[in-house]
Nucleic acid binder design. Sequence first.
DNA 1: GATGACCTGTGA
DNA 2: TCACAGGTCATC
Length: 268
Amino acid sequence: MPELLEVEAARAVLEARALGRKIASVVANDAWYLKRGLTSAGVGDALVGRKLAAARRTGKQLLIDTSGIGRSRAAGPVLGLHLGMSGRVVVDGKSAGDPLLYTSNAENPAWLRFGVCFADGGSLWMRDPRRLGAVELDPDESRFGPDATVLDRRGLDRAIGRSRAPLKAVLMDQSRIAGLGNLLTDELLWRAGLDPARAAGGLEPSERVALLRAIRQTVRVLGRRGGSHTGDLQASRAPGGVCPRDGAELLRRTVGGRTTYSCPVHQR
DNA sequence: GATGACCTGTGA
DNA sequence: TCACAGGTCATC
């Protein structure tokens, strides 16, 4: 999906509309979608009878805490949802985080990969055309670095370390910093005036200050605007596009394995 | 650390 | 028919 901002929107929808509701049944017919050995029967057994207790997020990973059954004080498993490239969460027929770029926003029952039916008659679905999303129980939450929304200077320095990898690759490495994806990263590097291909460990202190500021600002501003696709660079993020700041033709190349747009003039 | 693979839809 | 897509994983 969806990067941090869209996942956060999905989390907010879950929190506002799905908490406290009791799971009557689980529809998990797509075995490919269930990860780490999880089976259709297994996920049903684990969840039916429980309530959704909390909706959390780390980076792009959605985490739904479940309650114990009946008077049991032992909490249930954590339901981990990952939206992949094209997934979204649909509660009672309404989704969040739209519109999604580079995929269909249409409805097609075949794209409903995983579902939870509530005792009150409503439902929670994951709709995912490309099927790169995932459902698992008790995902390992320790594999993520600090979430980009709470990143501080110390976290940034730790993430960068002495890495000689391209700056963009480091920022998108979820084990170093969680939540930044292709669009947010291109946008924030454009705002920071930093070349995505530079060796991360070579950043001067003043450049790190600018980078951290850009991360915070980009997440905040694009969040307010409504998503990862609302950046100033976005409209120009196409072959032949021009830098909105200084008019130079944007550079299009692959950095860290992803299509990358940057300004050859002001990103150094 | 770069590359290809995974899966499927869309638009040129 | 091909290239490409807001993500992640295994492999060279």
